[in-house]
Design a protein around this nucleic acid. Structure first.
Lengths: 361, 361
DNA sequence: CCATCATGGTAAAGTGTTTCACCGTGGAGT
DNA sequence: ACTCCACGGTGAAACACTTTACCATGATGG
């Protein structure tokens, strides 16, 4: 007796059981036939329809196991109208994915989407992509059930197209109050406020700001808080203490250079993100300024490697991963029409490291 | 006369033209009817079948324009057996996407995939994901036509499953000679060799190596080259000059500490990637060593921010973006069966910046 | 004792393409 | 004048599921 009971042959990956006609994948029909039920019943088992008795459910399940049956999700989508795919749409910044800011957000999105049975497809919103209305094609042609937009600004009017056509879309960590777009963001104002309080506590009075582009609402918010707190404190710092750093290392470096040329006595620089902060520190080193002894530097985002530069960067921790997670959750709810408007704000907090110190003198 | 000729109403996103029955998307049948041809003809126009006359092609095209018709790609996939989707499979490293190394690779993959009419879906190979054979489900259930695996090592035996089942898969920037897996990689040996030549030129004789895990073929290769060159030069450096840095900043930092404890007279450290190099520089600063005056540091990868640390990091430039591009190209060819085996190596080169200098004394 | 209803399952009609076998027409070849 | 073939196009099956309307059964209630 070579084999006791050859009841459940290890199913091959291609889903072809030992007992099916060779060369053909096992389909729902095969399962139905072997389980001696109708195709509809198998489908209902697949979809956890409560109409089915535990007994028949088990019977069908067993056949599925034995045959290694796996539903073809293309056919499922065709019938059911749901693809269980989400799009993550990114702006056209060179190698945008190489930016840990986006990476963290997308990590969160992917992890949660996976947990909730969805897959994530990546899209780059190049100018001609938008012109050809490929963003709508995504829905029209049934590629995805919903979209998450990350890193766009006020010039990206196409973001309004989704809502107009009734497609589920969410802006992630950036908001567009003027267009009433659903969003999950972090508390940029709060973070900026904490930074200012902290810098004042350290005795800084000559503070420069390297901000990101004003087309981005959150960049504006941070600057507003900066301006407001500076005014309240009566420091009398005008616009010459603000410089655009384009959200990049190079931009931050150049902004820092301009700032120092104008105000050699500056004692602290607040950068709108960590990348610019790195640029600032780089430039300070070049100009012979010590951080934090001569100049304190604060960043914003708390990217992983911010803790490993010299000196380690004090920065505002933005829960990017968590923002991604929540965005995925809300989007899926939006798709299932369990909710119809989302506007969520996650808290930020200051992360103190070595790039800040008491103001000199 | 309100409207001159209402011939081409601006098609709504939902593809419903002004003249179709409301509430129903326009399908291939509608186009066929309006163009007075058969459904098959429309399909052939869609697929650029040469059988169709220019005249009829134009006639059909015009109707498509006017109605704003867009083929439902789910139905297309169901018939044609191609989904035009590629999977990018990533290992379970915390927030792996936030790592610019992966980001660059994926950027390249996405850009090229998009250009060739494919979409990219992201997958994380968690342990239970593999156990449940979800990696095969990707193909069995017709999610994707092919897969690109990034960042895996010798413990990930599941990589063999793809080939066994005849599914198109490519390993990106890591190779598995023992399993004969198709791959597109960069020339790690060549890069390491250039580093060693350069360090010798600078007069370094006491050189430490902070390497990545030996489960990764490329890490082994780099170490082998290091060992070989060191032996050839007769420096007499044993294994105590090698430390595992786990490919992370923290790991690099700790490895550096151990290295210096053992060999306080070390004058150069070669790190297997930029992240570890940052950790090394961080630790050197903590221990009061100046870079590059006391110790030279060389990284590997040339991530974007490596140029913006202090001092700027000398490193081996790995064409990650380009590797991604080529991998996408080759995978698509594999899917279309235009080729049946791929093993491509892209060149690397040394990028000199401020973290290296003549050996002291 | 018969009408009513809840239960558990089924047959068949979508879902929107591609593809394959076939067909009518007109021109070339003999 | 007849056969043959290339050309350009058509009708219908196939793809692999979900869903809806419907049906048999047995329990329940008046």
């Amino acid at each position: 007796m070579p084999k006791p009971t050859a009841q459940a042959p290890a199913p091959a990956s291609n889903g072809r059981p030992a007992d099916a006609k060779p060369g053909k994948r096992v389909g729902i029909r095969d399962v139905a036939r072997l389980a001696e039920v109708s195709v509809a019943t198998v489908s209902m088992v697949l979809n956890h329809n409560p109409k089915i008795t535990a007994a028949t459910r088990e019977k069908v399940r067993r056949v599925m196991e034995q045959t290694g049956y796996q539903p073809n999700r293309i056919a499922q989508s065709l019938s059911s109208k749901y693809t269980r795919m989400l799009a993550v749409i990114l702006p056209t910044v060179r190698h945008v994915l190489a930016d840990p800011y986006f990476g963290e957000l997308i990590s969160g999105i992917c992890d949660r989407a996976e947990r909730r049975g969805h897959k994530v497809v990546l899209e780059h919103a190049k100018p001609d992509w938008v012109r050809d209305r490929r963003h709508l094609e995504l829905f029209d042609r049934r590629f995805v059930d919903g979209a998450l937009c990350v890193g766009f600004n006020d010039h990206h009017g196409f973001l309004q197209d989704f809502g107009k056509n009734g497609w589920p879309m969410l802006s992630v960590n950036s908001e567009f109050p003027q267009w009433g777009i659903d969003h999950v963001v972090s508390d940029y104002a709060g973070g900026a406020d904490q930074v200012m309080t902290y810098l004042f506590q350290l005795g800084h009075r000559k503070i420069g700001m390297v901000h990101g582009a004003f087309e981005i609402a959150t960049a504006r918010v941070v600057c507003e808080v900066f301006g407001q707190r500076v005014d309240e404190a009566g420091l009398g710092l005008d616009n010459t203490w603000l410089e655009d750093g384009l959200f990049t290392e190079v931009g931050g470096r150049d902004a820092c250079e301009r700032l120092l040329a104008r105000h050699p006595d500056i004692t602290a620089i607040f950068a709108g993100n960590d990348k610019m902060a790195l640029g600032v520190m780089h430039q300070l080193a070049l100009m012979g300024k010590r951080v934090p002894d001569d100049v304190s530097v604060v960043g914003y985002d708390d990217l992983q490697h911010a803790a490993f530069v010299n000196p380690a960067l004090s920065t505002v921790h933005v829960p990017l991963y968590e923002v991604g997670v929540r965005a995925a959750d809300r989007l899926i709810e939006l798709i299932r029409k369990r909710t119809d408007s989302v506007s969520e704000v996650l808290p930020t907090h200051l992360k103190l490291r070595g790039s800040t110190a008491i103001a000199p003198r």
